[in-house]
């Protein structure tokens, strides 16, 4: 065997969007504000995934303003409607849709006034990027003017909405139920190099294809995939929180090893869009699903490279060396062909 061996492996995955086996809900308020700006109030703030930017894009699209004109309130149980927790790959799906619906509600108030003001049918009105116009006419004004006109007629264009995802609980005996209304699927391929002298595994490439429903911000989706892959890689190869009879022995980052810039494969993201038919935005989610297939893809790649299968994570250099030491080349194959022969014989009734 050469010292450095390479191989590839793949793994697929699936995941449910929003809270599990229960009904999920989120609320939001929207207001078209002076100067053609907008206020969105909903109970979330950033945990890093980019949700505030996604919500600003959604609100801007629905209200006809620009993302940078949208002010989003922070998550506060006494000042904003309930949006519940920042997790479960539910932010874009639950809060994104509730912001879309609340924005539509506010826009409808504004459009009703402007349609009356211009004497055109409401459904001829369009708004985008700070401008409002009536289709097939020369009628056009800025959102700044539109809000002024609306308020001049005595109406503040505000809206609110609640979005629901209909999951059901599981039967306590056979587990049957419909835990989510939206599912996503993913597949990743890993390419690795294993140093058979040191047991060290380097992941050189990852190809990650994930269905996200609809990518609101493709760069943000890539960021979630890249981050998920690297957490998966950490769990696959190095991270291990250990206790000894209940006492923590990995007290700090000197003992608890995390992936650094030197461990990062080239990550090639492929975004697949299979729109969700049950929600206005048609987007699903990516936060958690991105991590699922990484570790098995890497283990399958290690097997492809050196013929040893690591069934207990993480695949540390010690474990790889140990497995190589006990490794009989081709043993798995021999066992399998024997199994195949036996089954064949059994079928022929011997």
């Amino acid at each position: 065997m050469n010292r450095k061996m390479r191989g590839r492996g793949m793994a697929s995955s699936w995941y449910g969007i929003a809270r599990t086996a229960t009904i999920d809900r989120a609320g939001a308020w929207a207001e078209l504000d002076d100067g053609g700006t907008a206020k969105i109030v909903t109970g979330v703030t950033e945990i890093g995934e980019g949700i505030l930017t996604v919500l600003a894009q959604v609100a801007a699209e629905e209200l006809g303003v620009r993302p940078e004109d949208v002010t989003i309130g922070d998550n506060d149980t006494s000042r904003s409607p309930e949006a519940a927790h920042a997790g479960a790959t539910r932010q874009t799906y639950m809060i994104g849709n509730s912001v879309a619906l609340a924005s539509r509600d506010a826009r409808a108030k504004l459009f009703a006034e402007i349609a009356d003001h211009w004497d055109v049918p409401v459904d001829s009105l369009r708004a985008f990027n700070g401008e409002l116009w009536a289709q097939d006419t020369n009628l056009r004004m800025s959102m700044d003017e539109a809000v002024k006109t609306c308020k001049g007629r005595g109406v503040v264009p505000v809206g609110s909405a609640s979005f629901t995802a209909h999951g059901t609980g599981l039967d306590p005996v056979d587990g049957s139920g419909s835990p989510w209304q939206a599912y996503v699927f993913g597949t990743q391929i890993a390419e690795v190099e294993v140093d058979t002298w040191t047991g060290e595994v380097q992941v050189l490439g990852i190809w990650a294809a994930h269905d996200v429903g609809r990518a609101i911000n493709p760069r943000g989706v890539e960021g979630q995939i890249e981050g998920g892959v690297v957490q998966g890689l950490g769990q696959a190869l190095m991270e291990d929180y250990q206790t000894e009879k209940g006492y923590t022995t990995t007290h700090g980052f000197a003992k608890y090893i995390l992936p650094t810039s030197l461990d990062i494969p080239q990550i090639n993201c492929v975004i697949v869009e299979d729109p969700d038919p049950l929600s206005p935005l048609q987007a699903k989610g990516i936060g958690e699903p991105a991590l699922v297939p990484t570790a098995p893809a890497i283990m399958n790649a290690i097997y492809d490279a050196i013929g040893v299968r690591i069934k207990s994570l993480p695949a540390t250099p010690e474990k790889i060396l140990d497995a190589l030491r006990n490794h009989v080349p081709g043993r798995e194959q021999i066992a399998q062909s024997a199994r195949q022969d036996r089954a064949e014989a059994h079928r022929r009734g011997l």
Partner: peptide, 26 residues
């Protein structure tokens, strides 16, 4: 809805995957 077929195709194509059984063919 189900998109695994599309996702598998996308991953296979993007990675230029060479088909074959996973029998230590690295």
């Amino acid at each position: 809805t189900a998109s695994l077929d599309r996702v598998l195709d996308a991953a296979e194509e993007a990675s230029r995957w060479e088909a074959g059984a996973p029998k230590v063919r690295g």
